[in-house]
Simulated assay, not measured.
Amino acid sequence: MTDHNIRLSSPEIGGLWGTYIQEKMTVCLLKYFLHHIKDGEIKTILQKALDISIAHLKQISEIFSEENIPLPHGFSDEDIDLSAPPLFHDPFALSFIYTMSRMGMINHAFVTSNIARHDILDFFTKALNQSSELYQDSTTLMLSKGIYDRPPMISYPKKVEYIEKQSYINGVIGKKRPLNAVELTEVFFNVERNYFSILLCLGLLQVVKDKEIKGFIKNGKEISEKQIKFFNELLIKEDLLGTVPVSMEVTDSTTSPFSEKLIVALFHFLNSIDITLIGHALSLSMRTDLATHYSKFIGEILIYAKDGFNIMVDRKWLEQPPQAPNRKELEEW
């Protein structure tokens, strides 16, 4: 099958364009972690992830070249300082692979479901599988090292039951039912995701000197702390243990290994995926107290993300995605 006469659709262009920038960022971060890593097992996974990201960049470059589409600038070695002391201990690098592979599975699945040209479909299908492999590799290694915090266990159901009362959704007034398995899953992974964000913020707050960006990171840390507090208290009220971080993975370095542009862009990416995941949790929640708080958290993150967007625009760090022509302007020409 040949596709040389089939133009790329907007989802295909947008998916490739966004993936290219994300992979450029990932390459910078992986090079940094590889430079400092001591643990041989973690190093093997980091190198595998780096090889995958570099291959993705090469493939997208070739596709865009064939289609005469300019490549975004993204990031480069100038955005990392390998001479800076390590900012995180080795386990954080493994947490990074684990977190980014989960997000990769989500992003690639979204893009894959919106494209049709078979070479682009092949690319994203393979990328999705590779993210799944990295997730499996990182999870297996985390389990072996005793640093994977498993979600809460519940009793196996003994029979099929149907919801009989509309009060099942009640979570604000009156007696609340226990969390179901789907809700518990979303609560747990929300807490886990925010612990990763707090560790990231703790490290970056030590090294960032710019007052505006430092304030931006501090606000992000407070949002994550607020979510963790709410969900941990919820778990404790349900007689389920709240989750706790396994170890402190931040060193005492005060020298930044990353450019300010890379740091704010990373937060921009994490905000977008967080909104997606909380929206997903909201869609699955059948208790009104959860739905109310999810909606509130989405609003807070949207406001916070706008602050990051403004920083990037003001400093000319944010590249504009490919967009459709303004037909009204063309008609007036």
Rank of each mutant, 00 (worst) to 15 (best):
176 K>G: 00
171 G>D: 01
27 V>H: 03
80 I>S: 04
228 I>Q: 10
58 K>Y: 10
93 A>E: 04
261 K>S: 03
326 N>D: 09
209 K>C: 13
277 L>C: 05
87 L>D: 08
5 N>K: 13
332 E>Y: 08
14 G>D: 08
110 F>E: 05
157 P>H: 13
94 L>P: 00
132 S>V: 12
85 P>L: 07
210 D>A: 05
48 K>N: 04
137 D>L: 03
68 N>I: 10
208 V>W: 08
240 L>R: 00
153 M>K: 13
171 G>C: 01
134 L>P: 00
221 K>V: 04
89 H>G: 04
197 S>L: 15
252 D>G: 15
114 N>R: 10
21 I>R: 03
28 C>A: 07
316 K>Q: 11
330 L>M: 15
284 L>D: 09
93 A>N: 04
76 S>F: 12
236 I>T: 05
225 E>M: 12
208 V>A: 11
225 E>G: 09
7 R>C: 04
292 T>M: 15
80 I>W: 03
112 T>H: 05
223 I>R: 10
112 T>E: 09
88 F>W: 15
36 H>N: 06
85 P>H: 08
186 E>C: 04
38 K>F: 06
243 T>H: 10
225 E>C: 07
244 V>F: 15
279 G>C: 08
22 Q>G: 05
41 E>D: 11
290 L>T: 00
236 I>G: 03
198 I>E: 11
298 I>M: 06
234 L>R: 00
238 E>I: 00
167 S>P: 01
286 M>E: 11
177 R>Q: 11
23 E>M: 15
9 S>Y: 06
117 R>G: 09
295 S>R: 13
165 K>V: 06
279 G>P: 02
136 Q>S: 10
17 W>V: 04
203 G>V: 14
218 K>M: 06
229 K>V: 08
33 F>I: 05
219 N>R: 13
252 D>E: 15
158 K>G: 11
76 S>P: 01
313 V>C: 04
228 I>V: 15
255 T>V: 14
264 V>E: 06
218 K>S: 15
32 Y>H: 04
209 K>M: 14
321 P>K: 07
58 K>E: 13
231 F>K: 02
46 L>R: 02
142 M>Y: 07
214 K>A: 09
86 P>E: 15
146 G>K: 03
139 T>W: 12
300 E>C: 12
267 F>P: 00
227 Q>R: 13
192 E>N: 06
171 G>P: 00
61 S>L: 11
108 H>N: 02
118 H>S: 14
98 Y>K: 08
306 K>P: 01
1 M>C: 07
106 I>R: 02
185 T>G: 10
222 E>N: 14
8 L>Q: 12
81 D>N: 00
259 S>G: 07
56 H>Y: 10
92 F>E: 14
57 L>C: 07
315 R>E: 09
313 V>I: 09
37 I>D: 02
256 S>H: 06
135 Y>K: 07
330 L>K: 12
81 D>L: 05
90 D>Y: 00
305 A>W: 06
326 N>G: 02
190 N>V: 06
293 H>V: 09
301 I>M: 04
229 K>G: 06
15 G>H: 14
83 S>T: 10
311 I>T: 01
66 E>C: 08
219 N>G: 13
134 L>R: 12
302 L>M: 14
60 I>Y: 09
111 V>Y: 04
